[in-house]
Design a protein around this nucleic acid. Structure first.
Lengths: 264, 264
DNA sequence: GTGCCCTTAG
DNA sequence: CTAAGGGCAC
């Protein structure tokens, strides 16, 4: 089973690139982030035509997540509040950043972690608060569900210096500050491991390159799109790779898709 | 000699369509309207590469006119004020709607007549005032210059009912109201005749179709892009036609080019 | 419907 | 640099 994650930066603008990629890479599950479209306007047909069931949680302009799956997905959960309770997280769920469901006895959790803008900003505090909620959400899932868990998506955090093209000033940069890394590491203590690092330990593998300053041409990238797996799945993982080909096309997303293969 | 007029509705967006058309239709002169770009940002190179001298008078977002010519153009005049005097028309020249120059002893006057929005509106009054100035401008040119004159461009007026797909309610519609027609007819009394109507008298020939309500597919068009010629040129005109092919392409302008051929 | 500006966001 | 939305114009 192959599960891919891809921040597409607008599914409407990227429709052709995504369908082309799925024809070449018929993954079982594709988790999308930054779909940037209201549910009524989501282009379902091109993906359903390829044999996918489509599950969406969108909003206009910003954020938005979706799951495409060859098999029907069961027990879909939209946002944090069905697990953590309306009162606590209603405000957080206004931004559509979380969708999850069960496929083949794996709970796939698709995440678009807040970017955080700049260290110390209001958006940064939102990011840290959001990650704290994520930990609670995952703990609850682990305690109350019998499935293995695969969380994936755009984490907007590079955990190690080798995940960044140039680690100068990393401590002051959003996505690589010590506090962000600690908070994400703390989330992972619920029992999750980085699938990519099971197979590849060297530096220089990236999933995101800034549109600005010709980031891709100069390979100034970051590895911020991840799959984290519970122990049994981690054992079963046979491959994990970043496909930079779609990043080379005309009008690409700034992110590349990342795929994990699991042999059950 | 062939002189074309084309409202391109943004030269940056239409660059490919215009260069493709010029390769197929290497007219001597192309008069453009609604270039919608500041002079510093005008894409000169693609047109100069095709052998054209380029003369521009643009502004951001709205209006903007240009002349492309195989031969160098002499005695370029920007706007009304060089002819009518700064005091009278400085305000009118803030909108870039007029550029003219002499090619092969013909003064070509390229016009983007104000649309007028709705009858009775402030923009409508501006349109009528602008046309009154145009008459003075043309009278002055006729009195003080020895060349023949070809005025062309987007007039935003259909002079006759047969120039409109459906003349119902024409009297209440901008671009076909009696007052607009009278004012344009009055401009033409300086001594100008409609080149297109020298050759084609029947109804159903249009140069503009609204993007809205599938105007082109239903052929709900208007003939509002014209060439008007002084008597000698009118005699020398051998052809005048509207080329609707570019209107059929992807992402077209809402206007088609119109070409007049003059045998000197 | 289409295009451009400006703003917000990344 | 890229994308979206709201506003304006046509």
């Amino acid at each position: 089973m192959q599960i891919a994650t891809w921040n597409v930066n607008s599914i409407r603008t990227r429709q052709q690139i995504v369908t082309d990629w799925l024809k070449q890479n018929p993954v079982d599950v594709l988790c999308l982030q930054e779909t940037k479209v209201r549910d009524e306007q989501f282009p379902l047909a091109p993906f359903e035509s390829l044999g996918y069931h489509v599950y969406i949680s969108g909003q206009k302009s910003y954020n938005g997540v979706a799951i495409f799956s060859k098999e029907p997905v069961t027990d879909i959960i939209f946002g944090f509040s069905p697990i953590l309770g309306d009162n606590l997280v209603r405000d957080f769920d206004e931004q559509k950043r979380v969708i999850s469901g069960v496929i083949d006895n794996i709970r796939v959790v698709n995440l678009y972690v807040p970017n955080g803008s700049a260290i110390g900003s209001e958006k940064y505090e939102y990011k840290l608060g959001w990650l704290a909620l994520l930990k609670q959400y995952l703990q609850n899932l682990k305690e109350n569900q019998s499935t293995e868990i695969c969380i994936c998506g755009d984490f907007n955090i590079a955990l190690e210096d080798k995940d960044i093209y140039n680690s100068k000033n990393k401590a002051k940069h959003i996505m690589s500050s010590p506090v962000e890394r600690e908070v994400l590491q703390d989330v992972l203590t619920v029992g999750l491991q980085d699938a990519f690092r099971k197979f590849t330990t060297e530096e220089g593998h990236y999933s995101w390159w800034d549109y600005r300053a010709a980031g891709f041409q100069r390979n100034r990238g970051w590895r911020i799109d991840h799959h984290y797996l519970t122990p049994k799945l981690y054992e079963q993982a046979t491959k994990c790779w970043i496909d930079i080909e779609p990043r080379k096309l005309e009008k690409p997303s700034d992110h590349a898709p990342v795929v994990v293969e699991i042999e059950q």
